[in-house]
Amino acid sequence: MTAVSNLQLKTSPWQTIVLLTLSLWLGASLILDWVIMPSLYVSGMMTQAGFTSAGYLIFWNFNRIELVAAAVVLTGVLALNKTAFVSNSWRRGAVILSGMMLAVALTNAYFLTPQMCATGVQLNLFEAVEVPSTMNNLHVAYWLLEAIKLAIGGTLLGWCFRQQA
């Protein structure tokens, strides 16, 4: 007597990987942007001479983690496109959105963070520490990219969750 099982996998492991990576990445971004950096700013660390070095160290590490997360998300979306687990309408949009998230991570890692560090470094120990005016433009660019990243990541997370359900 043989029994035939009709049990099939309903989700791909790549969907779980993309969901988990996006959730951790966006959660870490929110903690960094809304908890860590404001607390450093309120505590007065931004007016101290070592703030640029500390900020660069924090963002250098976080940017590298973001690059890995963006690569995992893009890889997962591309792998999902080769399976039958996702709908055709999802495929092109998800690849574009995950590519945009990688572009944001690359811009943060290789343009904004080094530029902010170079702008904020104190080269003369005898001058008072003040925030350069160009730093405000860089902060606006950073917050704009963060808003774009969170909006795109939230959209992609919603799409992945709906595909899994």
Rank of each mutant, 00 (worst) to 15 (best):
M1Q: 12
Q8N: 15
L9E: 14
K10H: 08
K10M: 07
S12C: 02
P13S: 04
P13I: 00
Q15V: 00
V18F: 01
L19Y: 08
T21E: 00
T21V: 03
S23M: 06
S23W: 02
S23I: 07
S23F: 07
L24C: 09
L24T: 11
W25N: 03
G27F: 00
G27N: 09
S29G: 11
L30E: 05
L30C: 08
D33V: 06
W34N: 13
V35L: 15
I36D: 02
I36Y: 04
M37V: 11
P38W: 03
P38M: 07
L40H: 01
V42I: 12
V42Y: 09
M45Q: 14
T47S: 12
G50S: 02
G50A: 04
T52R: 09
A54I: 08
A54M: 11
W60S: 13
W60Y: 08
F62L: 09
L67F: 06
V68Y: 01
V68M: 05
A69H: 02
A69G: 05
V72L: 01
G76T: 00
V77R: 02
L78Q: 01
L78P: 00
A79W: 04
T83W: 07
T83S: 08
T83K: 06
F85T: 05
S87H: 06
S87D: 13
N88K: 14
S89D: 07
R92T: 10
G93L: 10
A94G: 03
A94D: 00
I96R: 07
L97F: 10
S98C: 03
S98R: 00
G99W: 08
V104I: 05
L106F: 10
T107W: 09
N108H: 15
N108C: 14
N108V: 10
A109E: 00
A109G: 07
A109F: 04
Y110Q: 15
F111D: 08
F111R: 10
F111E: 05
L112W: 06
T113A: 03
P114E: 03
M116K: 06
M116P: 02
C117S: 13
C117F: 15
A118T: 15
T119N: 10
G120W: 02
G120Y: 07
L123R: 09
N124H: 15
N124C: 09
N124K: 06
N124L: 09
L125D: 12
F126M: 15
E127M: 14
E127S: 14
A128K: 15
V131L: 12
P132Q: 02
P132T: 04
S133A: 10
T134W: 08
N136R: 12
N137I: 14
L138W: 02
H139L: 08
V140H: 08
Y142H: 15
W143L: 10
W143G: 07
E146T: 12
A147V: 13
A147S: 11
I148V: 11
K149H: 12
K149D: 13
A151Y: 03
A151T: 13
I152L: 06
G153S: 05
G153V: 03
T155I: 13
T155N: 08
T155M: 10
L156Y: 01
L157M: 07
G158V: 06
W159G: 13
W159C: 09
F161M: 14
F161D: 02
Q163T: 12
Q164H: 15
